[in-house]
Design a protein around this nucleic acid. Structure first.
Lengths: 330, 330
DNA sequence: TTGAAAGCGCTACCAC
DNA sequence: GTGGTAGCGCTTTCAA
């Protein structure tokens, strides 16, 4: 069943059927009605592929994410999908893994399929800047980066004001009398490196002058969080406030603290970084800097969808995080 | 840049270029080399849309899932995406929500885009059987259901042996001397209803004869788990073993038990149903019946990919769950 | 207001 | 072994 069949049955030309289906141009009301009846009779849906061939769009966008199993990412992908779905787009999901070079494979097929746009989720994708052979292949469509930034004409950003989040966290701990604060995050990531920088700057602003290790690098994961805390204790570092770069590492860290007989929040207060249910399942519940995953996803869609409608590109959007108080900080 | 440009630059016809690109038919080695050089020079990628127009496939499949933010579902979608990606397919994700009728909207666009196949994730989709007006629109492609089953020619299934999982859970509790066991799951779902049935059957098999409420219906969610436990206690029901239909409800339930001063596992042993990190973040760690989400995703892909290659359709595949022992059962 | 026809970029068939 | 060409199902222009 194709447009010719419909046209034949309605006794008109395919042009007119096309006009009726797309609500374009003027069509005699009577004829229109006749065509619509045939359309309904067969519940006819025109081929998006043939349409895409002419119009150069399949109404499909792609999301690049390292791993959709990570709750924050899942939330963002969810928001992106739901928003785009409302605009009539479908969303392809690509789990690239941490290794940025894997993007290449996806970019190849996405460009062949001419997806209308790309959303990247997670700070790793900022590293694409180091792979011009990949970004050069990404010029056919706009790219909106959640938590990432690349200085190229078709790349746009939605960023989180991490520094303010960190500042709020430090203020909170400080207000509770916790003045020996450490930051534990993955310094090998762009986000982690930025956090360290902000952290040291804020401490300086606050005229806090700690000699002991203040920043420990640890990968994301529960085990790694526990490991980092152990390291801190083995080094004889004294601390009474910990800020983690991820919820899951914070939870691993809390387990280790408990194992060492330290009470949370009495002996050590803990702050995580995220926005997922995990913060509620752990004991005590975890105070977090809310990364506003869903809001970020929604904003990415607003920008990308705007671009697809030829709206003016926007300056990088900055989202303000919010600190959510729970048991781990008393 | 299209196939004509490549052909012109190489001084050959588009037929030959097509043959080289698709490694089909015989081409003079010299000419082949010349064409490949031009192809490489421009890093030329043929349009998947034009190709799809002829070949009737865009090498794309879709996943229908209620909500990708639920960890088990995220794991399954992840597995499906990774496996299909290895086979050269892209995966569209559709978050349909609990309301099955929302599928209609997605099915319409998916059929227009002629996706090669569909994977559904979660037992809700069994309910599609009640909506022939939707399933009738799903005939253009094979559908493989994870945890679901519909008796239609193009629908295939990968199922979990829930009864065995439940039996293992009950045996475990029984072995620990816990003989007053309750099941807490959402009876309004297909899965929940089946679990209740299995549960009662197993108790009967084991000649366990409990008079008190043994099955409580509670929706999925932490609050709901807590609510169900409260209900159980308010009813004065005595129990020493709880089996929940979801991890998250189990965690909510454990919180409530703790609040009531009950020790886990000494006073009450708890078993959840799932396969996610939450079981490790809670306190104590949760014993679960592993739903084998990733394995299930992988099997769905094997079946669907086989069907796309015109391999023989398979009988429903049944996966055996596995019980993972942790602190909540001692 | 309607229809004829070109053309989107490719694959596959049929001649040569 | 190679090239010409029909045709996939649509949208869009141009004439009528």
């Amino acid at each position: 069943m194709n447009i010719y069949d419909i046209a034949a049955e309605a006794g008109v030309s395919i042009s007119t059927v096309s006009r009726v289906m797309n609500h374009k141009g003027n069509v005699n009301p009577e004829m229109k009605k006749r065509i619509e009846e045939v359309l309904k009779k067969y519940d006819y849906k025109p081929s998006a592929i043939a349409r895409g061939m002419v119009s150069k769009t399949m109404k499909t966008v792609a999301v690049l994410v390292t791993d959709i199993r990570i709750p924050q990412f899942a939330s963002q992908v969810y928001a992106v999908e739901q928003e785009f779905s409302r605009e009539g787009y479908n969303v392809m999901v690509c789990n690239t893994g941490e290794n940025i070079e894997n993007c290449d494979k996806y970019i190849n097929t996405l460009s062949q399929k001419q997806v209308d746009g790309i959303v990247t989720i997670g700070s790793v994708f900022s590293r694409l800047a180091e792979y011009p052979e990949i970004t050069s292949k990404m010029r056919w469509s706009p790219v909106v980066m959640a938590n990432g930034e690349i200085d190229l004409p078709n790349f746009y950003s939605v960023l989180l004001n991490e520094q303010e989040g960190l500042r709020a966290g430090i203020r909170l701990l400080y207000g509770k009398g916790k003045k020996k604060i450490c930051l534990l995050c993955d310094l090998e990531t762009n986000l982690g490196a930025r956090m360290k920088e902000s952290f040291l700057k804020i401490l300086k602003d606050l005229k806090i002058d700690r000699k002991e290790e203040q920043v420990i690098s640890c990968k994301n994961g529960m085990e790694e969080g526990a490991w980092a805390v152990r390291l801190l204790m083995e080094n004889g570092c004294s601390f009474d406030g910990l800020i983690f770069g991820r919820e899951i590492t914070a939870i691993g860290g809390m387990k280790e603290l408990r194992k060492a007989g330290l009470r949370i929040p009495e002996d050590v207060s803990v702050i995580g970084w995220g926005d997922s249910i995990s913060a509620l399942t752990c004991q005590p519940e975890l105070t977090t800097v809310d990364m506003k995953a869903e809001q970020m996803g929604i904003l990415c869609v607003r920008i990308l969808h705007g671009l697809l409608q030829n709206q003016e590109p926007q300056a990088p959007v900055i989202i303000e995080p919010e600190i959510i108080l729970r048991g781990s900080t008393g």
